[in-house]
Amino acid sequence: MESAVEMIKVWFRFVPREGWFPQDTEGLWAGRLSPDTARVQNVPFLQDGVAEGDVVRFETDSRGLHWAVGRVSASGNCTIRVVPDPCGPLGRSPQAVHQLLARFGIAGEVFSEDFPMVAFNAPFGGDFHGIKALLIQGEEEGWWHYEVSCATDEWWNA
């Protein structure tokens, strides 16, 4: 019988970007692997350099919060953030963004109703060339703005 993985929140600290959100931390759900490592289980909205499936090392503070101190191993997944252009053909619809990217079998999470940014996990072995082409097309045609916040050589070379 398999034992259940303990889910914990691993917190990341970063310097807020100018013109972006004022937060300087983000908590990501992770499955504990050892006393000081965990596998990230969701897509980051704010933290750069980490993707779903990555294994991170953390330290636990006196309040019991788990703070990331580095990445142990990369999953090969990539993190992409897409914000629909409210003046474009998709309006503010994160659902329309999802529909356009669904053909690649990728899923995303919406930041909030007020700010409909969608954070996507592009899985290792996915159609990175096709995803990149659609992201570029969408930006050129005014559908959205996007950024790649964690990528692999496979992504950049696709």
Rank of each mutant, 00 (worst) to 15 (best):
P94G: 06
V5Q: 09
V55C: 03
P22D: 13
G64N: 09
T79G: 07
T79H: 08
P86R: 08
A158L: 13
L100D: 01
Y146S: 06
G125C: 05
P84H: 14
L134E: 14
N121A: 10
P35A: 10
V118Y: 08
G19I: 08
E113Y: 00
Q47K: 12
H145G: 12
A68D: 09
V10N: 01
G88Q: 04
V5M: 11
V50Y: 01
N121C: 15
M1R: 09
E113V: 02
G105C: 13
R39K: 07
P35S: 09
Q95V: 06
T152G: 05
W156Q: 10
I131Y: 01
L33G: 07
G108I: 09
D48F: 04
F14E: 04
Q137R: 12
I131N: 02
G125S: 05
W155Q: 04
E18S: 12
R71G: 00
N121M: 07
T37L: 01
S3Q: 11
R57T: 03
G76N: 12
F12R: 00
V148A: 13
A119D: 14
G53P: 06
G76E: 13
G108Y: 04
W20F: 14
G31M: 04
W20Y: 13
F111P: 00
R32I: 05
V118T: 15
G49T: 11
W20D: 15
F111L: 11
R17T: 07
L46P: 02
N42W: 09
Q47G: 06
L134W: 08
D54H: 05
G49N: 15
D85I: 11
D24P: 07
K132E: 10
T152N: 10
G53Y: 04
E59M: 02
R81K: 12
K132N: 10
L134G: 08
F111T: 00
A122Q: 09
F111N: 02
W156D: 10
